[in-house]
Amino acid sequence: MTNNILDFEKPLLELSAKIKELQSFMDEKGLDLSEELMKLKERAAKLQREIYASLNTMQIIQIARHPNRPTARDYINYIFDEFIELHGDRKFSDDKALIGGIGLIDNQPFTFLGHQKGKTTKENLSRNFGMAHPEGYRKALRLMKDAEKFKRPILSLINTPGAYPGIGAEERGQAEAIAKNLMEMSALKVPVIVVVTGEGGSGGALGIGLGDRIMMLEYSYYSVSTPEACAAILWKDVEKAAEAAEALKITAKALKGLGIIDRIIKEPVGGAHQNPEEATMLLKKAVLEEYASLSKLSPDELINQRYMKYRNLGVYNNDWNDVLEGEILKEEVE
């Protein structure tokens, strides 16, 4: 775990190294320095609180993209008592960037879908960095239809920089695959619970992300475009990514405020990568709570509520003058 340390984590790691040092010094010499130790620990806790309370969006993105952040596979291992991976879209291939299967969580059957990133470069290459091709979305749809047939709720975990922008992906209908999923997911007769666990990269995330409950881990992000691409497109300047990141309002907190997501799932102190087991347990708890409330709804109620949730999404005004309160604009209109 000495690799992949984020800049803002450094002072904390230095402090915890000091604590360890002091501890072993005490043990070695048989001295009682517990008061000093206590003070150091308090300082560390305070520093941690301060750092994590004031993270900017780019820092949150760094946590979301952390190589040691739990992946779909980790969540499966920790929260499913029983799990069988199912492969292939039955049309072209099996997409390793988007995995799926069936299993039991606390004896409740679930169909699982999730983008799969790797932790090493080698693994990432085989997983295409969690960027799915149309086959991934079509496999997901096949499994969702299967879930509907067997009345299994669906758990979908999002963690992708985006759908893969490549020649084959375009040739085989990346857009159609995502569109079709959105259309079909809107009317599935079973509960669909979605959690953004890391990166929520635009259409590639949404392609398995239409559901009854949309949740985000505390340090994940969900965006219409990466801040880098946004800065490049709008301001022709990649250096302005940090500015774009703030402007796009992509953090869990901001999106909860905008009504895009329903719930934020707390992460262990320092982020999910610091304590994957605790992170997965917090996710499991939230998923089961949401499932408990959704399972009370009839299929019709479920579909209608889901439809209205999306039908009502949008912010607009009925009077142009309310929208533009500037004189600058009138000049342009002349």
Partner: peptide
């Protein structure tokens, strides 16, 4: 594509319109 200046609200219009097409289809 989606209008960047409306962020995730714009992205969600994909879901909204596709859900509406489903009803049209039905």
């Amino acid at each position: 594509g989606a209008r960047m200046q409306e962020g995730m609200i714009a992205l969600m219009q994909m879901a909204k319109t596709s859900a509406a097409v489903k009803r049209l289809d039905d």
